[in-house]
Amino acid sequence: MVRELLKHLFRSPATSKYPFEKKTSFKAVRGRPVWDMKRCTGCRLCFRDCPSGAIEMVGKGSEAEFKHHLDRCLFCGQCEEVCPVDAIAMTDEFELASYDRAGMIIEFKR
């Protein structure tokens, strides 16, 4: 144990100075989902499957627009998976904090 301790005197810390130094995230990370409104057909599948009701649909069918409530989102990726036309993609954005709930609503318009 002593040897292990003293070895650490000469090692740089394992923790990172987070807000100043950022780790590059893996490609596979499920971050904020984005809708590609050109592809979307308004089939309502993502809206129906979302486990936490984070997806709000305004309008119907191919006219539908989306409101994504980040404060409710679980980032499970079910919407991406269920989308029949691959209109939803999970990005690797994960710093999504905001000062109020209004800032947590992201709108996708046609």
Partner: peptide
């Protein structure tokens, strides 16, 4: 102590 524990 932090250095020994691999922290800052």
């Amino acid at each position: 102590l932090a250095k020994l524990q691999n922290r800052y």
